[in-house]
Design a protein around this nucleic acid. Structure first.
Lengths: 290, 290
DNA sequence: TGTCCGGCGTGCAAATATGCATGTATGGAT
DNA sequence: ATCCATACATGCATATTTGCACGCCGGACA
């Protein structure tokens, strides 16, 4: 009764991902290898861990037990690798940053540029996504996030407050100037689905023309003149073809934070990046507020 | 920055055991393999984990950190394998019992015999030692111990109380009968180093003739007539050539327990062994008490 | 019904890991 | 001074592990 640790890890991956191919992708081996490691694990433990079904491997109760313990081992490994990263005092090698797409595209590019210029040896990898990557599992070293708090177990630095306001293309702006209480067409972002009542009353006859699940698409529609959007100041101001319109007064919006796992936070690369970032933000703070 | 789990385990073994050869023995591979796995781990992490010294590998601070986390993984593995054993409902395969040497030699042999006869498929392994094996680390499935409680995190069943008393060879017995208050020579076991005052006063002129760290040796000396020993009833009674002498009155001694880890306790083989054991002990309880 | 696709098993060659044998260095015992 | 034991490095042959190519199966779909 014995099992190698790499085989345990393989059982975990298969329980988590359900098929040989999926597990193999996460482990970065071929599914053939996964298959044979599972066979070996079952032989070593003298137990059946999976039922082979037509649509994949189904874990037995025993395999779930195995996977639970392997998950503890997995957590310990992540914990270790985070701590090792935190102790890394070099300014060389990989460094992974994640931030919302639009923040990178419309604002952060100069920060990335300066950081890379100052630290030529660092291999910066940017993960531009609105998904919250799991910093516990080392999906990124540092994250820039728009939220009210750094979050659960993470450390954070609040970079700036920000406001949002209403923006539209110049034709809409002219029209609103000409008729300040006329109706407007709204473009609405799913995550902020309600139009303030005051705006509806001040502009009788307004309607929600479209709803979007994607901010990039919505801003594009606004540029094309499809309507008025409510968006953070920095986005409205940095998107060509949009101007602020006096439909909504500026309103406080979620803050911008730089957050990281406490273990990784003190690493040299993380410190260096924050230096550049904070420096730049200080100079640019006016962009974010009314 | 990456490391295989088996390599982590190897780092742990090397930190724990200090030399390639020692680590290799515990991992059941050759020290060459350990050496190369360490090299690979260091390359993978891009860190120095050990200083190569003339008298072995010395772990760096980093390696200690790695080992701490690997130890958590190790604990999770032991936890898992214990639980798997506990779920084992077969009466086949290996089963490891540990008990004090003398308990096995002088009393338990019939239990082992009956258990093996009843369960021919079980490969019984007996570890006769006075050391307390680590049941957390699966050094044994079940232990029979002489102690006041089952201990820390273990489960237990108290098999019997017992008494101790004074024993010697027949010549000493005759001599004591002839002169009930005459001096006696004591043979003393290190773990119970004091002779009761009452006995010294009742037998003026008595002395401690020798001290032993080993009960087998001490009983041998008593058989040879070197003096009087204080020993559990069952040992005095089952050691040929010894008879009880009225120097010390019987006195309560530590109980006999069968203990196991709660995870392993319910396994079929463990249950089956306890059945045979408890059955036998019930019939033999008189042997242990005055 | 024929085709495609996801999911899997298997033979074989290549890549990788392992063990053995041998060689070096160091410290202690004779 | 010499010998021995411990601890490690390294070349080489062997074992094991891996990936690829190919084939099988069942279900979805035109």
């Amino acid at each position: 009764m014995d099992i190698g640790w790499d085989d345990l890890r393989t059982v975990l991956a298969l329980v988590r991902h359900g098929s040989l191919a999926a597990a193999a992708k996460h482990l970065d081996v071929s599914y053939t290898t996964v298959s044979r490691r599972i066979t070996r694990a079952e032989a070593g433990l003298n137990l059946t861990l999976f039922e082979r079904l037509a649509d994949g491997y189904r874990p037995t109760e025993t395999a779930v037990l195995v996977a639970e313990h392997a998950a503890r081992m997995d957590a310990a490994e992540h914990d270790l690798l985070r701590k090792l990263r935190g102790r890394d005092s070099t300014l060389t090698g990989p460094f992974v940053l994640t931030a919302p797409q639009l923040l990178i595209a419309n604002f952060l590019a100069p920060v990335l540029d300066r950081f890379c210029a100052a630290h030529r040896q660092v291999e910066l990898r940017v993960r531009a996504t609105n998904d919250l990557l799991d910093l516990n599992r080392r999906e990124a070293d540092l994250a820039i996030r728009i939220s009210h708090s750094p979050g659960d177990t993470l450390m954070g630095l609040r970079l700036t407050q920000q406001h949002n306001a209403s923006f539209a293309n110049p034709e809409w702006a002219d029209q609103i100037t000409a008729n300040p209480s006329g109706p407007v067409d709204w473009l609405i972002y799913d995550q902020y689905p309600d139009v303030p009542k005051a705006a509806m009353q001040a502009h009788l006859g307004s309607r929600v023309r479209m709803r979007f699940d994607d901010m990039v698409a919505m801003l594009g529609a606004a540029q094309a003149g499809l309507g008025v959007v409510r968006t953070p100041m920095f986005l409205g101001r940095t998107t060509p073809g949009l101007v602020q319109v006096p439909v909504l007064p500026p309103h406080p919006y979620a803050d911008i934070w730089v957050v990281g796992h406490p273990d990784v936070w003190p690493s040299a690369k993380s410190v260096a990046f924050r230096d550049v970032l904070v420096d730049y933000i200080k100079a640019q703070r006016a962009l974010f507020v009314a």
